[in-house]
Design a protein around this nucleic acid. Structure first.
Lengths: 172, 172
DNA sequence: GTGAGATCTGCGGATTCCGCAGCCGTCACG
DNA sequence: CGTGACGGCTGCGGAATCCGCAGATCTCAC
């Protein structure tokens, strides 16, 4: 059993070395498994996770802490904003002239903007907005987003009903 | 101090009664505050939350359990899928003829679909897809989504870079 | 007014969290 | 080849947390 543990550990090292091609800080199979456990239940005890992935409780704790520190993962409560008092949400498609990334950064700085992604297709950027009411939504879109220099046009999709929202990738 | 606690409790009751107009199961100020605490840190101890919102540890535990059971909130680990090995993501705008909700339900049943929302605007539905590679993405969009009866057209926005992803509404 | 229901509190006992020391690999360097 | 630094895992206690339960209080309905 001891030799098995050693073998699996060196295998992980091989994995982490191979996956160091991208800019993102590696991620071996064990950390993946830990993340999957926490995607099922963000409060699952470290000992239970350790049993599931074949690691001691302390090792799981150290890895989780590292993943959090590195920003690879965050453990949070998520809700349907509509049930929490945010009446108006919208996805906004944006076309940009000039530097797309600087516009995206400007959007990122807005607290009402929950989600910003650069895309290929008929929009350069998609941004999700969460507001308390129509006035607030209108203000953000027309006064603040369209006022950014370089924003050529925007198209809004106001949310009527949220049907699905999961965070289970890797768990299927 | 005892009378103060009683007063605040009856105030909460008033809140919950007022907010019972929507179809969603109420949500008083204390539960809101608990959710905010867990949005900052999903593993925060119940006692610490209780101190912050003015409730005993056991009461916080009962409320959190209830919020989870009711599906109002979930405590999970969230990551940037790109760092976890899912190379291709896309937002897909969909136009529907006939019953929009049944199409949305069909999309919800697909494991690759992370996010489904019914919208007003030039799309009836927005769906976010998370896939491992281009083949997988192509398969989901062309073979499965466009094959649904009632789907008139789709437009895809492949993700190039995720710039922001937060879950802090209510905490600002 | 009386009982059902919901929610909060307080309290042990079991479980979990957390820091620390020690061990064992790998790697770099002389 | 040896040696020292470093990262990661284990095991171990003590402190903190979790969890179920019984009792109290308030509301609501009949």
């Amino acid at each position: 059993m001891h030799s098995v543990a050693v073998a699996s550990r060196s295998a992980e090292h091989r994995d982490s070395r191979e996956s160091r091609n991208g800019s993102t800080p590696h991620l071996d199979a064990v950390s993946l498994a830990i993340i999957e456990q926490l995607q099922e239940d963000g409060r699952r005890p470290y000992a239970a996770i350790g049993k599931a992935v074949g690691l001691s409780e302390a090792a799981v704790r150290q890895r989780v802490q590292k993943l959090l520190d590195q920003g690879v993962m965050q453990i949070v409560a998520v809700t349907d904003p509509l049930t929490v008092g945010f009446r108006r949400q919208a996805m906004v498609g944006i076309n940009v002239e000039g530097d797309v990334e600087s516009i995206a950064d400007a959007l990122t700085a807005m607290p009402e903007v929950e989600y910003v992604v650069m895309t290929a297709g008929s929009f350069d950027i998609l941004a999700e907005i969460v507001c308390e009411d129509d006035d607030h939504l209108l203000d953000v879109i027309n006064k603040r987003m369209r006022a950014l220099p370089g924003v050529r046009s925007t198209e809004s999709f106001v949310y009527l009903k949220l049907k699905k929202q999961t965070y289970m990738w890797g768990t299927r």
